[in-house]
């Protein structure tokens, strides 16, 4: 195995992690501020991808497609918050899980009804397609590099939003004591709708960005959702910083595990057995990581003390 391959895989892991962060950020905010488990977060990811594919198909512009994805996911998020989610804050987690699971089914079937059962086409914009050569001779996809840049910019923006703005103060206050900030005269229901729509918009953005290199199809959000839950558990629920660190950890573990574990088993096993054992362990690696983090820090890396 060459150093070049390893470097490329580190970049891949980073890019994967950054995209997970966009999903996990919304999830962790909603859980942290409203105490709500939102299984339908993956559907908002899908809404973003479908909106982007539809607009890109109609106009041919990737920038417009991204704007459409943000707008559609935020609008869908706000609508769902007002119509359904709002009624769930006071109820127990089981009710929330059931209701948001129902939302997944409703989103999926409505999307199929609108767009049909076949995957849609959304491609990388011409200007960003193809590989570039990085210092050291690594050939790497320009689009993936752009994804890393956009993701880091969003992370920085979120950090500023949370630490420097009035909305950020309210969000942080909401995380530590919901009743108290309502008592202090903050319009809590408006705050909830904004937080929910913000999380939805981030998920929609991730859906559109990832949709260009993956398949835009019904149900595309659910596998990502599971990983996003792993990320927020590792990072500590409610913590944006935790979500970022957790996402990059999960991305790197997953990518490097898939590469290194089969090689490691190849040292003392024959090829076929090493491939299957290595692949099996690699699929488990992020869950093993989660288990280790939980043993050492039960409330996650940056979680508040339980």
């Amino acid at each position: 195995m060459s150093l070049l391959l390893l470097a490329e895989q580190v970049l891949n892991g980073l890019q994967f992690g950054i995209m997970l962060f966009l999903m996990a950020a919304g999830l962790t905010l909603v859980f942290g501020v409203m105490g709500l488990i939102n299984l339908a977060h993956g559907s908002l990811f899908m809404v973003g991808a479908f909106a982007a594919a539809a607009v890109a198909g109609a106009t041919g512009s990737f920038v417009l497609a991204l704007i459409a994805a943000l707008a559609a996911a935020a609008a869908a998020g706000a609508l769902v918050e007002v119509l359904v989610i709002r009624r769930l804050y006071a109820r127990e987690h089981l009710d929330q899980v059931l209701a948001t699971f129902a939302l997944i089914l409703i989103f999926s079937e409505s999307t199929r009804w609108l767009f049909g059962s076949f995957p849609l086409f959304l491609n990388i914009p011409e200007a960003l397609s193809g590989p570039v050569t990085l210092p050291g001779g690594i050939q790497y996809s320009l689009y993936r590099l752009t994804l890393i840049a956009i993701g880091l910019a969003v992370a920085f923006g979120l950090f500023l939003l949370i630490s420097r703005t009035r909305l950020g103060i309210q969000i942080r206050a909401g995380e530590s004591d919901r009743e108290m900030i309502a008592a202090l005269g903050v319009d809590i229901s408006k705050l909830y709708t904004i937080v929910f729509a913000l999380g939805a918009a981030l998920a929609g953005l991730a859906g559109a960005l990832v949709g260009a290199i993956q398949s835009v199809q019904v149900g595309m959000g659910e596998p990502v959702l599971i990983l996003a839950f792993v990320v927020i558990v590792i990072g500590g629920i409610g913590s944006i910083k935790g979500a970022l660190v957790g996402a990059i950890l999960v991305g790197l573990t997953d990518t490097l595990g898939g590469l290194l574990l089969p090689l490691f088993f190849g040292l003392f096993m024959d090829n076929a057995a090493a491939t299957s054992t290595g692949s099996a362990l690699a699929s488990m690696s992020i869950y093993i990581l989660m288990a280790i983090v939980l043993v050492v820090k039960p409330s996650g890396l940056y979680g508040a003390k339980a």
């Binding site: 391959l5 490329e8 895989q9 891949n12 892991g13 890019q15 994967f16 996809s141 993936r144 990832v210 290199i213 993956q214 398949s215 595309m220 596998p223 990502v224 990518t255 898939g258 590469l259």
Partner: peptide, 8 residues
């Protein structure tokens, strides 16, 4: 859904 690692 992501095959960057395999492609590398």
């Amino acid at each position: 859904t992501d095959y960057a690692s395999e492609i590398a």
